[in-house]
Design a protein around this nucleic acid. Structure first.
Lengths: 211, 211, 211, 211
DNA sequence: AATGAATGAGGCTTCATTCAT
DNA sequence: AATGAATGAAGCCTCATTCAT
């Protein structure tokens, strides 16, 4: 077991990233003061600059460290799935919900949306490593279902977007306008209705018309 | 023909609002400098304050002049609609798409999402005057369809959110991550698929189970 | 009788001065906005500049027009006084109180005190035409009383200052800190006590010691 | 010997307060630019905000550090005084004169009078912490003297005002109109005459009439 | 003579970043 | 490695002054 001092030093970057994530998610990039990040991580303002070149670098590190592992996990799940395709969509959503939707990472989508224009290279990174792979997962399930005759035929790439949208909005809303709603919305119900509409909406029927 | 001075005077507010909308959407609320708004409208900083009390008021005016009329128009459409309920949803969407989705106002949802937390005042204003009324419209169509037996029974409030989400995401995406996509997405197709999934997803079937 | 339009034009400067006096007294020089002065006088901002070169000039005009006539009146009273000297002091105070203390001019001393440093030439004007002559009046009464044996001998110039101070403070207070007092002070009682202390304080006694 | 950096750090607040006092007294509260305060203390604008939250706080600190201790000291003097009451008044005046009247703090009364209306917050702070306690001191001496039969009976609260007025005016004058006087006035003589008039004016005589 | 739209300098305050210790 | 004092650029907003009508 390492001496506490030593442990401290090695844990610093992670502690700073966690503090930064919390504040970025809570207040947005511009409104987050580095002094507050440092304070939340229990160090001084100057120390932050020993680990991250500047505010932008800190932001990029927060995003990059945050979210990728969950995607990989879902890719493995999809690869070994054997049941029907709609069930796969449900499993992927469940896992994503428990690993992202119910953790601090839930704030990332809103953060990315808000700042993408100001950080184009970061947006590209996020797109390639998170969004693109996430869309790939949904696309895999859709194509699989269409080929097996479970789903009707539709333009896959666009359908992916339509399917993902309510899931992203659920989180984006939570970190933006939700403060204005007096009635708490129920995310479980929201997701259930979304999947419910999809189950029936995707299903292949007798008098199928090509889209 | 009016004297130029006079003509300017009357055109000023509209010119300023247009400049403000453009910059708000492009850079966000905080990052937009009032001096730049003034410059884009071809006047000096101080002039802006002759027409709008402060930055908040300018923002509210942008919303007031640009978005609220469309909401009101849609409310009128809904009130006098006589056909089936799904057709009403389609008409409302069409109108909203041509008046908002295809204009500079399309950037507002992303703007609101990005800044809501830091400007609760503006968020509340937007919620009350836009979101709340927009949800009311969708809710009206849903309830109407459920009562007539056209739609199956679902939790209305939550379904509203699920239905609106893809429409909002379409715009939010356009003003955030879209720069990372190499293939241009087709909003018409996107909206058609959304409505297609909904048409089938909302429909009441033989073996109906309550949700 | 002149036409109203004509009357208006000739009355403008006086109306503007009255409005300016009111606002200067209420808010001080810097905090008074010329737009408010114009509004109170019922004209537009630009009109003000037709009559006064700038804000400084307006301030000087306010002071210069305001207060001199009362001094002249008191000088006449003193010249023809025949009774005892303390009675003269009381008469002068009474007149000053009713002509200045109970009118809008009461705010001038505070105004001069606050701005003297920023308007040295105006301060000099005020000193020569108001303060100096006011001190002369009190000095006249004091010397008269000392010569007649009614008052004990004291350094006249300094005694003048000591006597005038509470009278000025009464007004200065009213236009500055009085807002912080919960109990309304009674100026009549204040002046009576001041004169009471003076009556006994100035009187020549048996065992007189030179000061 | 302390490192220079460290020494500076500890000296900063006092240096800033001194610079602020000087400029406040010289130019007034509004006309004093924080940048000038910082420059006079030899630091940059931003540094000032490390020590004082804003302009108001800086002002309050000036009062807090400079004037309130003298009030407290005088309260202690009054509490342990055993001689006659007029002597107490003289001692209090002497102490106040040497600690305030002969220092840069002498400019504060004029400053307060000039700015009270526009900064009710500051006025209230000053009233509660300085004026109110100062009046309490004089009131204490007056009541003490009336009870012992040394002074005649008068309305105490109003008499306090009358007594304090010349002392305040002495300072107010020095920081306002004094520049217009060619003959330098002698504050020592002024205060002596004031106390002389008071000594005789307050004294209880044979044929006492209630006021 | 009168208007009021337009200007732009100026001050308070915030905060990312630097650097001496 | 760590600190935190110091810096100064940047933005909102006010208002005296100008000037075309």
């Amino acid at each position: 077991m390492l001496a506490p001092r030593k442990r401290r030093k090695e844990a610093r970057p992670a502690e700073l990233l966690e503090a930064a994530l919390g504040l970025f998610v809570e207040k947005g990039f511009t409104a987050t003061r580095l002094e507050d990040v440092a304070a939340r991580a229990g160090v001084s303002k100057g120390t932050l600059y020993l680990y991250f070149e500047n505010k932008d670098a800190l932001f990029k590190a927060v995003i990059q460290e945050g979210i990728i592992p969950v995607i990989a996990e879902n890719e493995a799940i999809a690869a070994r799935h054997t049941g029907c395709s709609f069930a796969l969509l449900e499993i992927l959503l469940d896992n994503w919900w428990s690993k992202i939707g119910q953790t601090a990472f839930a704030g990332i989508p809103k953060l990315m949306v808000a700042e993408a224009r100001n950080f184009p290279d970061l947006a590209r990174f996020y797109y390639e490593h998170v969004i693109s792979r996430g869309r790939g997962l949904v696309g895999f399930a859709l194509r699989r279902g269409m080929e097996s005759g479970e789903f009707r035929s539709m333009d896959v790439e666009t359908t992916i977007d339509v399917i993902i949208a309510p899931i992203l909005m659920l989180l984006i809303w939570r970190y933006s306008m939700s403060c204005c709603q007096n009635s708490e919305s129920d995310p479980q119900l929201y997701l259930r209705i979304h999947m419910d509409l999809l189950r029936q909406g995707l299903r292949k029927t007798e008098n199928e018309t090509q889209v």
